[in-house]
């Protein structure tokens, strides 16, 4: 869970907004209702990151002695990736290869895939495990075909990301990092993805079409209602429009069009160097 200081900060900010600022300012700051951060119940005991555990536990779909190899099409990509690095530094390709393996294997990398990569880049398997456990974007346990990642960093949290996550979990009937029974969805948390201006947001990693049709889209300016709509569209196989979900906003511009910068911006005033 997030440190208590952040929650405290959120509460403070809310207090400031409701008491001192004018109604108009509040409505501009917060076009959607914001859930009080303190309203959130006890956090589930699951680890907050996509990594489940830092060690492997055998399961029917994830065993070290399973056979795993890159598909024919991906093998070409592997060669292309490795061609970017000197032949004596093949291990530089571990991260792109893990990413490729994750796309091919439906959003997660089994141990067998890590072993296969270790063989390709000619290092001991533990060196690949180290990388895969370090980066939280490599999932080492099963995820859904649509892996929904809710941003949990302070700006999104202040703008209600906790509620977005709670809505998602409730709607899908899962816990964090758990896969729905139909294998379609899983919800995880991520740290700042750089969309603070359109907070709150989720990222959807779409593994339903393999590594060819793999997409990784942001859905921003969410409301609990809208996020359910997005999930339902995904379930139907549709592609919701990516980016901001606010009807009046375009990309990260303000609602209802620009309020400033209407014309060509003036160039900055320059000193007349000759006059000095």
């Amino acid at each position: 869970m997030l440190p208590p200081a952040a929650r405290l900060a959120a509460r403070r900010l809310l207090g400031i907004c409701s008491s001192s600022a004018s109604e108009a300012a509040v409505s501009r700051l917060a076009p959607f209702p914001i859930a009080a951060a303190s309203a959130r119940g006890p956090v589930s005991s699951a680890r907050p990151f996509s990594t489940a555990l830092n060690y492997h536990i055998d399961s029917p779909e994830n065993k070290p002695d399973m056979k795993w190899e890159f598909s024919e099409a991906n093998m070409k990509k592997v060669k292309d990736i490795l061609s970017h690095y000197p032949s004596n530094y093949k291990q530089s390709g571990i991260i792109p290869l893990l990413d490729l393996a994750q796309q091919q294997h439906g959003g997660w990398v089994p141990v067998a895939a890590m072993d296969a990569i270790a063989k390709i880049v000619e290092v001991a398997p533990i060196r690949v495990y180290e990388v895969a456990t370090f980066y939280t974007m490599f999932n080492r346990t099963k995820v859904g075909k649509y892996h929904l990642l809710v941003c949990g960093t302070t700006p999104c949290m202040i703008r209600g990301s906790r509620e977005i996550e709670d809505t998602l979990l409730e709607h899908l009937g899962v816990k964090r990092n758990e896969v729905t029974s139909d294998g379609l969805f899983s919800v995880g948390e991520m740290e700042c993805m750089g969309c603070c201006v359109n907070a709150p947001m989720i990222a959807v990693a779409d593994y339903s079409k393999g590594s060819e049709g793999y997409t990784y889209n942001y859905y921003e300016d969410l409301t609990p209602k809208r996020v359910i709509e997005i999930v339902e569209m995904l379930r139907r196989g549709e592609t919701p429009p990516r980016g901001t979900q606010h009807p009046e906003r375009k990309n990260s511009g303000p609602a209802g069009g620009n309020t400033t910068l209407h014309g060509e911006p003036k160039p900055p005033p320059c000193r007349d160097l000759d006059a000095c």
Binding site: T51, Y55, I126, R127, Y129, E130, T133, F134, T136
Partner: peptide, 9 residues
């Protein structure tokens, strides 16, 4: 023997 490693972050 490359058995041990530093896992996680």
């Amino acid at each position: 023997v490359q058995d041990l490693g530093m896992l996680g972050r």
